[in-house]
Simulated scan of single mutants.
Amino acid sequence: MNDKDLIVSPEWLAANTENPQVVIIDCRFSLADVELGQKQYQESHIPGAFYLDLNRDLASAVGKHGGRHPLPNIEELAAKLSAAGINLGETLVVAYDDSRLAFAARLWWLLRYMGHSKVALLDGGFGAWKAAGYPVTNILPESREGKFVPELQRDAIVDIQAVKGRKDLPDRVLVDSRESERYAGLREPIDPIAGHIPGAVNYPWQGVTDEAGKVRSTSEQKQRWTELGKAEEIIVYCGSGVTACVNLLSLEIAGIPDAKLYVGSWSDWCSYQL
């Protein structure tokens, strides 16, 4: 698989908005204002796009442990995907946001976890679409009939016990995807404890794209992971299992598949220290 399979341009998407084999999903969201993404979508979105909300659709309720964005109820998400006209293994899903893939990559990863590999991300997101002069609308799409029956890839995830047991083994690498200041424990705006999981190395997720949200080239993605390429197992985490998915995308583009997500991430890890 190469990056052409994982990333589509605004030009390509504009030519395929009427393609019955393509379903577009708007994933815009703001951690600072959890209703903003939905409002933005209702005001203006790519024609035909459906909306999935990080908190309501791509995660489940927060508990004492498990992190700030536990995996969603899979049956409920599958029903929503079916209602968007997505058929498992057949429909190409194109996801976008306006946050350098922070939220769209969560859907990209979830679909692959659920057994659906035909999913790509819009390069540059909604901003690139508008900058290219393509149309937007406030018309909401009607539900469709699809058949999405998940085939979970359970090897794609690990929990805290697996991280504890494997993080110090040779040829295993634990990747922290947060900003360097949070990794170093100099600043923690969200979780109650600052710092990182002992032994983790830091690869901030923002490095996958440029400031405009365009995905860096395949060669740059490969260069990014040069030191980890020979690891037997790579486990990726962030604050709550969302932006880590951007690094998982980068690893896939770089030709390093099968990296795993610690779903609960730092917010789960530090919850056991309170």
Rank of each mutant, 00 (worst) to 15 (best):
Q223F: 08
R112Y: 04
S271M: 07
G241Y: 11
Y237R: 13
Y203G: 15
A128R: 08
D26S: 01
P47V: 05
R216W: 10
Y96L: 02
V215Y: 04
G63S: 12
N16D: 03
F148K: 00
R187C: 10
G229N: 09
E11L: 07
D53L: 05
A200V: 11
L169S: 11
V263I: 12
S9I: 09
E145V: 12
I256V: 07
A162D: 13
V62I: 14
D258H: 06
R172Y: 09
R112D: 07
N2P: 03
L186D: 12
F148I: 00
S117P: 05
L36F: 09
I74D: 11
E145S: 13
A105Y: 02
S44W: 09
W12S: 00
G239H: 12
I24Q: 00
A102G: 13
D159Q: 01
V175C: 03
I7N: 05
R166M: 14
Y203F: 15
A184R: 11
N19D: 07
S44V: 03
I7S: 02
K130T: 10
L248I: 06
R166E: 15
R187I: 09
L110P: 15
G185Q: 15
L54H: 09
L54G: 12
A156I: 05
E145M: 15
R100M: 05
W12E: 00
Q40V: 06
E220I: 14
R178I: 12
Y237Q: 15
D155F: 11
H116A: 01
E35C: 05
D33A: 08
R106W: 15
S60I: 10
D168T: 11
P47F: 05
V158F: 14
G264S: 08
G146R: 12
M114K: 01
D168R: 06
E43M: 10
W225R: 01
Q223Y: 13
A83P: 07
I25T: 01
A104T: 03
E35H: 02
E43L: 12
K80E: 04
C27W: 02
F29D: 13
P70N: 07
A131Y: 02
K118A: 14
S143G: 03
L121P: 04
K118L: 14
T226E: 00
S217F: 00
G239C: 13
G63R: 08
M114R: 04
R154T: 11
V173I: 09
M1P: 07
